[in-house]
Protein backbone atom coordinates (compact mmCIF):
# COMPACT_ATOMS: atom_id res chain seq x y z
CA UNK A 1 0.00 0.00 0.00
CA UNK A 2 1.18 3.49 -0.80
CA UNK A 3 2.91 5.35 1.97
CA UNK A 4 2.94 2.45 4.39
CA UNK A 5 6.15 1.30 5.95
CA UNK A 6 6.24 -2.22 7.37
CA UNK A 7 5.77 -2.33 11.12
CA UNK A 8 8.93 -2.97 13.08
CA UNK A 9 7.13 -2.44 16.32
CA UNK A 10 6.19 -5.34 18.55
CA UNK A 11 2.62 -4.66 19.55
CA UNK A 12 1.86 -4.99 23.24
CA UNK A 13 -1.83 -5.11 23.94
CA UNK A 14 -3.22 -3.54 27.07
CA UNK A 15 -6.52 -3.84 28.78
CA UNK A 16 -8.58 -0.66 28.57
CA UNK A 17 -9.13 -0.73 32.32
CA UNK A 18 -5.44 -0.17 33.00
CA UNK A 19 -5.43 3.46 32.02
CA UNK A 20 -8.34 4.50 34.21
CA UNK A 21 -7.32 2.42 37.21
CA UNK A 22 -4.59 4.94 38.01
CA UNK A 23 -7.25 7.44 39.13
CA UNK A 24 -7.76 5.36 42.27
CA UNK A 25 -4.10 5.71 43.15
CA UNK A 26 -3.71 9.45 42.69
CA UNK A 27 -2.78 11.39 45.83
CA UNK A 28 -5.47 13.65 47.22
CA UNK A 29 -3.39 16.83 47.32
CA UNK A 30 -3.63 19.25 44.39
CA UNK A 31 -1.65 18.05 41.42
CA UNK A 32 1.14 20.59 40.74
CA UNK A 33 1.37 19.70 37.04
CA UNK A 34 0.33 22.62 34.85
CA UNK A 35 -2.95 22.43 32.97
CA UNK A 36 -2.57 20.55 29.74
CA UNK A 37 -0.08 18.07 31.08
CA UNK A 38 -1.36 14.56 30.93
CA UNK A 39 -1.65 13.11 34.41
CA UNK A 40 -0.94 9.50 33.49
CA UNK A 41 2.07 8.07 35.28
CA UNK A 42 4.58 7.12 32.61
CA UNK A 43 2.56 6.45 29.48
CA UNK A 44 4.48 4.30 27.02
CA UNK A 45 4.03 6.49 23.93
CA UNK A 46 4.90 10.18 23.80
CA UNK A 47 5.24 12.40 20.71
CA UNK A 48 8.92 11.39 20.50
CA UNK A 49 8.03 7.70 20.21
CA UNK A 50 5.65 8.17 17.29
CA UNK A 51 8.24 8.37 14.54
CA UNK A 52 7.58 8.65 10.83
CA UNK A 53 6.55 5.31 9.33
CA UNK A 54 5.92 3.60 12.63
CA UNK A 55 2.81 1.41 12.28
CA UNK A 56 0.58 0.15 15.07
CA UNK A 57 -1.50 -2.96 14.36
CA UNK A 58 -4.65 -2.56 16.46
CA UNK A 59 -6.71 -5.31 18.11
CA UNK A 60 -9.41 -6.82 15.83
CA UNK A 61 -13.15 -6.56 16.44
CA UNK A 62 -15.89 -9.00 15.39
CA UNK A 63 -19.04 -7.18 14.30
CA UNK A 64 -22.37 -8.69 15.32
CA UNK A 65 -25.84 -8.10 13.95
CA UNK A 66 -27.05 -7.06 17.42
CA UNK A 67 -24.29 -4.45 17.73
CA UNK A 68 -25.01 -3.02 14.26
CA UNK A 69 -28.70 -2.64 15.05
CA UNK A 70 -28.11 -1.24 18.57
CA UNK A 71 -25.71 1.43 17.29
CA UNK A 72 -28.05 2.34 14.43
CA UNK A 73 -31.12 2.60 16.67
CA UNK A 74 -29.35 5.25 18.72
CA UNK A 75 -27.38 7.18 16.10
CA UNK A 76 -28.25 6.25 12.52
CA UNK A 77 -31.72 4.67 12.23
CA UNK A 78 -31.79 4.38 8.45
CA UNK A 79 -33.60 1.21 7.27
CA UNK A 80 -30.45 -0.36 5.79
CA UNK A 81 -28.72 -0.19 9.21
CA UNK A 82 -31.71 -1.74 11.01
CA UNK A 83 -32.82 -4.56 8.70
CA UNK A 84 -32.06 -6.67 5.68
CA UNK A 85 -33.63 -4.55 2.95
CA UNK A 86 -30.40 -3.08 1.54
CA UNK A 87 -29.93 0.49 0.34
CA UNK A 88 -29.96 0.18 -3.43
CA UNK A 89 -26.15 0.14 -3.58
CA UNK A 90 -25.48 -2.73 -1.13
CA UNK A 91 -27.65 -5.71 -0.23
CA UNK A 92 -28.67 -6.69 3.27
CA UNK A 93 -27.87 -5.25 6.67
CA UNK A 94 -24.84 -2.95 6.75
CA UNK A 95 -23.27 -1.10 9.68
CA UNK A 96 -23.54 2.67 10.02
CA UNK A 97 -20.33 4.29 8.85
CA UNK A 98 -20.19 6.04 12.23
CA UNK A 99 -20.34 2.63 13.88
CA UNK A 100 -17.29 1.57 11.86
CA UNK A 101 -15.58 4.77 13.04
CA UNK A 102 -16.50 3.97 16.65
CA UNK A 103 -15.14 0.42 16.32
CA UNK A 104 -11.93 1.86 14.89
CA UNK A 105 -11.65 4.42 17.69
CA UNK A 106 -11.98 1.73 20.35
CA UNK A 107 -9.23 -0.27 18.66
CA UNK A 108 -7.02 2.84 18.50
CA UNK A 109 -7.61 3.42 22.22
CA UNK A 110 -6.85 -0.18 23.17
CA UNK A 111 -3.88 -0.50 20.82
CA UNK A 112 -2.23 2.90 21.31
CA UNK A 113 -3.97 5.88 22.90
CA UNK A 114 -4.70 4.51 26.39
CA UNK A 115 -0.99 3.96 26.91
CA UNK A 116 0.02 7.29 25.40
CA UNK A 117 0.29 10.97 26.28
CA UNK A 118 -2.60 11.77 23.91
CA UNK A 119 -4.05 15.27 24.30
CA UNK A 120 -6.94 14.85 21.84
CA UNK A 121 -7.41 15.44 18.13
CA UNK A 122 -8.39 18.53 16.14
CA UNK A 123 -10.20 16.51 13.48
CA UNK A 124 -10.08 14.19 10.48
CA UNK A 125 -8.51 15.45 7.24
CA UNK A 126 -10.51 13.00 5.14
CA UNK A 127 -12.28 9.70 5.59
CA UNK A 128 -13.54 7.17 3.03
CA UNK A 129 -15.98 4.36 3.70
CA UNK A 130 -14.75 2.00 1.00
CA UNK A 131 -16.90 -1.11 1.51
CA UNK A 132 -19.95 -2.00 3.57
CA UNK A 133 -19.42 -3.64 6.97
CA UNK A 134 -21.76 -6.57 7.63
CA UNK A 135 -22.68 -8.87 10.52
CA UNK A 136 -19.96 -11.48 10.97
CA UNK A 137 -17.18 -9.27 9.61
CA UNK A 138 -14.00 -9.03 11.66
CA UNK A 139 -12.34 -5.63 11.34
CA UNK A 140 -8.64 -5.05 11.89
CA UNK A 141 -6.96 -1.66 11.73
CA UNK A 142 -3.46 -0.27 11.45
CA UNK A 143 -2.47 3.25 12.50
CA UNK A 144 0.60 4.48 10.61
CA UNK A 145 2.50 7.69 11.37
CA UNK A 146 2.73 9.76 8.15
CA UNK A 147 3.90 13.13 9.54
CA UNK A 148 5.16 14.54 12.83
CA UNK A 149 5.53 18.17 13.81
CA UNK A 150 6.61 19.58 17.17
CA UNK A 151 4.63 22.69 18.13
CA UNK A 152 6.68 25.88 17.71
CA UNK A 153 4.59 27.85 20.17
CA UNK A 154 4.35 25.03 22.75
CA UNK A 155 7.40 22.77 22.40
CA UNK A 156 6.11 20.43 25.12
CA UNK A 157 3.76 18.89 22.53
CA UNK A 158 3.45 17.97 18.89
CA UNK A 159 1.02 16.85 16.21
CA UNK A 160 1.29 13.34 14.81
CA UNK A 161 -0.63 12.75 11.60
CA UNK A 162 -1.74 9.16 11.07
CA UNK A 163 -3.15 7.24 8.19
CA UNK A 164 -5.60 4.71 9.60
CA UNK A 165 -6.51 1.68 7.50
CA UNK A 166 -9.33 -0.68 8.46
CA UNK A 167 -9.72 -4.00 6.62
CA UNK A 168 -12.16 -6.88 6.92
CA UNK A 169 -11.42 -10.59 7.36
CA UNK A 170 -10.81 -10.87 3.61
CA UNK A 171 -8.16 -8.12 3.83
CA UNK A 172 -10.46 -5.86 1.82
CA UNK A 173 -10.21 -2.18 2.81
CA UNK A 174 -13.40 -0.91 4.42
CA UNK A 175 -12.24 2.46 5.75
CA UNK A 176 -9.28 4.80 5.35
CA UNK A 177 -8.69 8.17 6.97
CA UNK A 178 -5.98 10.68 7.79
CA UNK A 179 -6.12 12.08 11.30
CA UNK A 180 -3.84 14.42 13.25
CA UNK A 181 -3.53 13.67 16.98
CA UNK A 182 -1.84 15.84 19.60
CA UNK A 183 0.65 14.22 22.02
CA UNK A 184 2.84 15.52 24.81
CA UNK A 185 6.56 15.37 24.17
CA UNK A 186 8.52 13.11 26.52
CA UNK A 187 9.39 15.18 29.59
CA UNK A 188 13.08 15.76 30.23
CA UNK A 189 14.39 13.29 32.82
Amino acid sequence: MDGLVPAIHVFLSRFPGDATASSDLRPLEVDPTPAGVYPSPMPRFYFDDLTLGRAFPLPPHAVTREEIIAFAREFDPQPFHLGDGGNGLSDGLTASGWHTCAIFMRALCDGLLLDSACLGSPGIDFLRWLRPVRPGDTLAATATVIETRLSKSRPDRGIVRFRHDVVNQGSEPVLVMENPILFLARPAP
Binding site: P16, A19, T20, S23, R26, D31, T33, A35, G36, V37, Y38, P39, S40, W98, C101, A102, I103, M105, R106, C109, L113, L114, C118, L119, G120, S121, G123, L182
Partner: peptide, 26 residues
Amino acid sequence: WDPQRFHMDEAEAEASSFGALAASGW
Protein backbone atom coordinates in the same frame (compact mmCIF):
# COMPACT_ATOMS: atom_id res chain seq x y z
CA TRP B 1 -16.00 3.37 22.01
CA ASP B 2 -13.45 5.92 23.27
CA PRO B 3 -12.42 5.22 26.88
CA GLN B 4 -9.80 7.95 27.16
CA ARG B 5 -9.79 9.41 30.66
CA PHE B 6 -10.96 12.90 29.64
CA HIS B 7 -14.14 11.30 28.23
CA MET B 8 -14.69 8.99 31.21
CA ASP B 9 -14.07 10.73 34.52
CA GLU B 10 -14.62 14.31 35.76
CA ALA B 11 -11.51 14.46 37.97
CA GLU B 12 -9.24 13.04 35.27
CA ALA B 13 -10.75 15.42 32.72
CA GLU B 14 -10.12 18.42 34.98
CA ALA B 15 -6.45 17.47 35.16
CA SER B 16 -6.26 17.00 31.38
CA SER B 17 -5.85 19.45 28.53
CA PHE B 18 -9.66 19.55 28.21
CA GLY B 19 -10.19 20.95 31.72
CA ALA B 20 -13.61 19.31 32.16
CA LEU B 21 -15.46 16.16 31.13
CA ALA B 22 -15.70 16.31 27.32
CA ALA B 23 -17.55 14.16 24.78
CA SER B 24 -15.67 11.92 22.38
CA GLY B 25 -15.47 13.60 18.99
CA TRP B 26 -17.09 10.49 17.52
